[in-house]
């Protein structure tokens, strides 16, 4: 006897937890080394003092943006490389989720586009709101970027009733 496997749109709570796990991994391994640099950059104080500081150091804003951009690129590479190579990330492996292409074979540009929301600079930060909201209005819980990249996040299910006899 062999089980016939099927994919179904991944449950939202699984996607959310898988994403959290990936963020934690990124935080420990990739972002933690930057925390010292970010702490030094970001002024602590009242709003007026911060405003005065940024006004006196105009180049600081661009440095901060550059730093955040690099962090975003690293996170983007994490998701795109893993999803392209094995159709999963660490979090997705744990929850048995997969990234599939709705057209033919999954391509690298598809993995890149679907993860663009992760870059923490304008205009990508707008996707933090737009991207998840579209999940509520699509049939397969697809985010906006998933629709654009023609991909979906699915989970493997083993229907108990299904058996294919030898």
């Amino acid at each position: 006897m062999q089980k016939k496997s099927m994919y179904a749109p991944a449950l939202l709570w699984k996607r959310f937890l898988a994403f959290l796990i990936d963020v934690v991994i990124l935080d420990f391994v990739v972002f933690a080394p930057f925390s010292g640099a970010i702490k030094e950059l970001l002024p602590v104080g009242n709003f007026h003092a911060m405003q005065e500081f940024f006004a006196a150091n105009a180049s600081l804003t661009s440095k901060l943006t550059l730093l955040l951009f690099f962090l975003g690129i690293i996170a983007l590479l994490y998701f795109s490389i893993l999803e392209y190579r094995i159709q999963q990330t660490a979090g997705k492996i744990l929850f048995k989720l997969h990234v599939v292409s709705q057209s033919n074979e999954l391509k690298f540009w598809q993995c890149l586009v679907r993860s663009l929301f992760i870059i923490p600079v304008f205009p990508f930060v707008l996707l933090w709101i737009i991207d998840p909201i579209t999940m509520l209005f699509t049939q397969n819980n697809q985010r906006l970027l998933e629709r654009l990249s023609q991909t979906a996040t699915v989970e493997l299910i083993y229907p108990k009733a299904f058996t294919v006899g030898a």
Partner: peptide
């Protein structure tokens, strides 16, 4: 991949 990204960061 995680190790590569660590070196990159």
């Amino acid at each position: 991949v995680v190790l590569m990204l660590f070196v990159f960061s």
